[in-house]
C-alpha cells in the first residue's frame, strides 16, 4: 500500500516536473469553475487564442534557438522593428508583399548578426541579445520619433483583422499553420533533430559530424524571421507600427518557452510545449481580467509564475545533477 502511494506520488512528481504549465492551466480552469463568468464560452477561447497568436508565433522561432541551447531576448526589438519597417514601406507606396518581404529580411538580418555574435564569436547569448534588443528599440524610436506610426493603406489592416471560415480570426489560422510548419521542422527534418543534438551536448554533436555552427546560426535567423513576421502581423492588427510593442515581449516569450517545458539547458522541449507555455500566460491575463483584477495583480502573478516555474525547472535539474 505504501509502495503504491509512493509510486503514485512519484508519477505525479514526474508530470509536474515535466510540464508545470499543464498543471497551471488545469488550476486556472478549476478556479474558473467557481466563478460565474463567460470563461467557458467558445468566443472567449477563440479570443484567447487570437490574443495569444502574436506571442505564440514569436515563441515558435525562439523555441528553435532555446532547443539549440541558446536564447533570444532581442525578439522584442525585432518585433517592433519589423512592424515599423512594414508600415513605413507601405506608407511610402510600396506593395504589401514587398513590405512584408522587407520586414522578414530585416528580421533575418538581425538573426544573422545575433548568430554571428553568439555562435561564431561564442559570446553569452543572454546578455548580448539583451543589448541587441536595446539597440533595436533605439532604432525603432529613431525611425518613428517614438510616436505610433499609423498605416495609410486600409488593405494592410485586413491581414490580421479578417475572419476566415465563419468566425475564426485570421491570426489564429496563421498561428495554426506556423505551428504545423515548425512542428514538422523540429520533429521530422534532419535540421530539427540536429538542433536537439546540439542543445543536448554541443561537443558530442560536433564530433558526430553535425555542422554545429551553421545549424545554430540558422536557428537564430529563424528566430529573427518569426519575430519580424509577428511584428508585421501585430502592426496590421493595430493598423499601427510602434516602438513600444516589444518592450516586454523578449522576456515574456523566453519565459513562456521555459514555462512550457523547453529547458534553457537545451535539447529538450518542443513547439507543442512552447505553445502551452505561452498559452498559460495568455490564460492568466484572461482570467485576471475576467475576475476584474487590476493589471498590477496581473504583473504580480506573472512574476510569481515565472519565478515558480523557472525555479522548478532549475530545481529538477539540480536534483538530476545531485543524483549523478
Amino acid at each position: 500500500m505504501t509502495m503504491s502511494i509512493k509510486s503514485i506520488s512519484k508519477s505525479i512528481w514526474k508530470v509536474i516536473s515535466k510540464q508545470g504549465a499543464v498543471l497551471a492551466i488545469l488550476a486556472l480552469m478549476i478556479l474558473m469553475l467557481f466563478f460565474n463568468t463567460n470563461f467557458y464560452t467558445a468566443y472567449n477561447w477563440l479570443d484567447m487564442l487570437r490574443s495569444a497568436a502574436i506571442l505564440e508565433i514569436v515563441a515558435f522561432g525562439v523555441t528553435v534557438a532555446v532547443i539549440c541551447g541558446a536564447c533570444d531576448l532581442s525578439v522584442g526589438g525585432t518585433l517592433s522593428f519589423g512592424g515599423i519597417i512594414a508600415v513605413l514601406l507601405i506608407n511610402a507606396g510600396y506593395p504589401i508583399w514587398l513590405a512584408f518581404a522587407a520586414a522578414l529580411a530585416t528580421g533575418a538580418l538581425v538573426g544573422f548578426v545575433n548568430g554571428f555574435l553568439v555562435v561564431h564569436q561564442k559570446t553569452e547569448p543572454f546578455i548580448i541579445t539583451l543589448g541587441m534588443g536595446m539597440l533595436l528599440k533605439g532604432v525603432c524610436q529613431v525611425l518613428t520619433d517614438a510616436r505610433p506610426l499609423p498605416s495609410k493603406v486600409p488593405e494592410f489592416m485586413m491581414i490580421s483583422n479578417s475572419k476566415v471560415i465563419g468566425s475564426i480570426p485570421s491570426l489564429v489560422v496563421y498561428m495554426v499553420v506556423l505551428f504545423g510548419i515548425f512542428y514538422y521542422l523540429m520533429r521530422f527534418t534532419s535540421f530539427g533533430r540536429n538542433c536537439y543534438a546540439i542543445g543536448g551536448n554541443y561537443e558530442v554533436a560536433k564530433y558526430s559530424g553535425i555542422k554545429v555552427v551553421p545549424i545554430k546560426w540558422t536557428a537564430f535567423v529563424i528566430s529573427g524571421i518569426t519575430a519580424a513576421l509577428a511584428g508585421v502581423l501585430l502592426a496590421s492588427r493595430m493598423n499601427t507600427g510602434s516602438s513600444v510593442y516589444g518592450d516586454t515581449t523578449g522576456m515574456l516569450v523566453n519565459c513562456g518557452v521555459v514555462i512550457g517545458g523547453t529547458s534553457f539547458a537545451g535539447g529538450v522541449g518542443g513547439i507543442r510545449e512552447s505553445f502551452i507555455g505561452l498559452f498559460v500566460i495568455q490564460m492568466l491575463t484572461n482570467v485576471m481580467s475576467m475576475l476584474g483584477l487590476d493589471s498590477y495583480y496581473q504583473k504580480l502573478f506573472e512574476g510569481i509564475l515565472i519565478v515558480l516555474i523557472i525555479g522548478l525547472d532549475c530545481f529538477v535539474r539540480m536534483r538530476k545533477r545531485e543524483r549523478v
Binding site: C71, E124, F126, I127, M251, N254, C255, V258, F264, K299, L300, E302, G303, I304, L305, I306, V307, I310, G311, L312, D313, C314, F315, R317, M318, R321
Partner: peptide, 18 residues
C-alpha cells in the same frame, strides 16, 4: 532552487523584478 548558470539567474531575477 539551485540556479547556477547565468540564464536561470537572469530569468528568475526578472520574475522577482516584476
Amino acid at each position: 532552487v539551485g540556479a547556477m548558470i547565468q540564464a536561470e539567474v537572469l530569468f528568475i531575477t526578472y520574475g522577482m523584478s516584476s
